[in-house]
Amino acid sequence: MKKKSKLWNEIKRNRQLYILFLPILIYFLVFHYGSMYGSVIAFMDYKPAKGFLNSEWVGVKHFIRFFQDPYFGRLMKNTIAISLGSLLVCMPVTIIFALLLNEVRNSKFKRIVQTVSYLPHFVSLVVICGMIKVFVSSDGIITTMLSALGIVEKQNLLMVAEYYQPIHIISRVWQVMGWDSIIYLSALASIDQEQYEAADLDGAGRFAKMRYITLPSIVPTISVMLIMKIGHVMSVGYEKVILLYNTTTYETADVFSSYIYRMGLASSYPQFSYTTAVGLVQSVINIALVTISNYISKKLKGSSLW
């Protein structure tokens, strides 16, 4: 009894905070938890005309259909290839860039390089994809250069299935390298300078210092970034795919989210329940990936997100 009244007093004392928070609470419940609850239509045959309450429950029918879908393997393969490929190329490049930039002695030059390298981050995705499209068209600048070197034939590179993934990944490196390096550069800036002085006395060279002092001190940052990125492996980059792919490149470009978009929203016969099921499969894989990578990181290095 006494405990209850204490709680009540606490609530009463903070009533203004609750009033302030009320709109935020409503927003999150409606827009975030509302749509999470909406995922249950994956287990129904949802028809907008019938409404949510009158649609029929069908169990895991849509999931079974998706796992038997001939496209399932292709979607899985492309999603993993594009996002894991982006991750495995972008992260090392970014880290190497940060390490090398950290070695630049002239601070003014360093700042110029940094400022210029952030630039692509501020160009909108639509514009980036527009640039990619004109650059790799049959007489675009990149096609012209690569065909002069004999690497590709003079054609629209976005119409060739085998080039889609390299184009997607390389342009992504261009876009994020500078910006993503900020985290590593700030970690590098906080390294104790005395370590370097001690290494100098031992006669360590530049590479030895990078290898034995600089790199180990940003390993925690790297592992946290890795966990965070792996958690988004399944969902990464679909807006870019939707902007860049076409029927001739579905083979290598179509990923879970673009498939959901095409079958669920861009189609004249939208399959809401089926595509929701596809989305749920995607989320479950995502959750599993974060949990596993977090667990591994905890075991290995003792740094984790939670």
Binding site: F28, F31, H32, G34, S35, M36, Y37, G38, S39, I41, Y46, P48, G231, S257, I260, Y261, G264, L265, F272, T275, T276, G279, L280, Q282, S283, I287, V290
Partner: peptide, 15 residues
């Protein structure tokens, strides 16, 4: 909500 969301389609039906 930083890690999970309802997905494209449920969000569409909601909105």
């Amino acid at each position: 909500t930083m890690y999970f969301n309802g997905g494209i389609i449920p969000r569409y039906i909601l909105n």
